[in-house]
């Protein structure tokens, strides 16, 4: 930073403006070209990741439809990766029958916000799959919530009928179908998962129930 430059040899400001204009023009061209060239592949990548996650959570899903949920709980079909608000992803088998709906959720954990997607089956009124999509929990402890087999088995058939809110209980004390058995040593992260599920099921399942016929038709 040359703040002590003598004022005497200051070139005319028209020269400075011309220079900045030329440089900005080059830079602008470069940025806009890259932006346009990468737009399609970026969107494509995002779509692939989304649909892979949905397929993983709803095994056997051959067709997917993404819905955006507006503030009053109404659905509209959206391009999954582009829509910024809350979303639902419905998965259908080869004959067009609804397998389940994938819901997104976020909740603050031990270190930062944990984000996850989970599958809800309207027939079973239960959560049938769970995947952490974003976490920065302590490696070796809190990050087990995304990999620990025993913990993930909580979400093979977790009661989401909303008669009892989903809660996390102390490791090894799960008795009821709506309880999540915590990982010992990662209690705070496990509890965050419980809160995440409780909150998003309370918000989204009524929306799904209300629009179930529409979701089953897939339009």
């Amino acid at each position: 930073m040359n703040t002590t430059a003598p004022r005497a040899d200051m070139p005319p400001s028209s020269a400075l403006i011309k220079l900045m204009g030329v440089v900005s023009l080059i830079c602008g061209l470069l940025i806009v070209t890259t932006h346009q060239q990468t737009l399609a592949p970026i969107r494509h990548n995002q779509e692939i990741i989304l649909s892979e996650t949905v397929a993983e959570l709803l095994p056997g899903a051959k067709k997917q439809v993404s819905y955006g949920v507006d503030a009053s709980g109404n659905l509209s079909i959206v391009e999954g990766a582009e829509f910024a608000g809350p979303r639902l992803f419905a998965g259908y088998d080869a004959y067009g029958g609804l397998i389940g709906v994938v819901i997104e959720g976020g909740e603050r954990g031990y270190a930062d916000v944990i984000r996850a997607m989970f599958a809800y089956s309207p027939q079973k009124k239960a959560i049938v799959g769970f995947k952490v999509t974003e976490l920065k929990e302590t490696p070796g402890l809190g990050d087990k919530i995304s990999s620990d087999k025993k913990f993930l088995s909580n979400f093979k058939d977790l009661d989401a009928s909303l008669e009892h809110p989903i809660v996390t209980v102390k490791s090894g004390t799960k008795k009821n179908r709506w309880e999540v058995d915590a990982i010992s040593g990662a209690t705070i992260s496990s509890r965050a998962v419980g809160r995440l599920l409780q909150k998003s099921t309370k918000e989204m399942i009524p929306v799904i129930q209300r629009n179930l016929q529409r979701i089953e038709r897939g339009n």
Partner: peptide, 28 residues
């Protein structure tokens, strides 16, 4: 072409351009 007085501004502009490019390329 770059005058001494505006060189830092010019440099930062150029650097920021390539950073924006690399940002999009990695995303793609």
């Amino acid at each position: 072409l770059v005058q001494k007085q505006v060189r830092i501004a010019t440099y930062i502009l150029i650097i920021a351009t390539f950073v924006t490019m690399v940002d999009y390329i990695i995303k793609a």
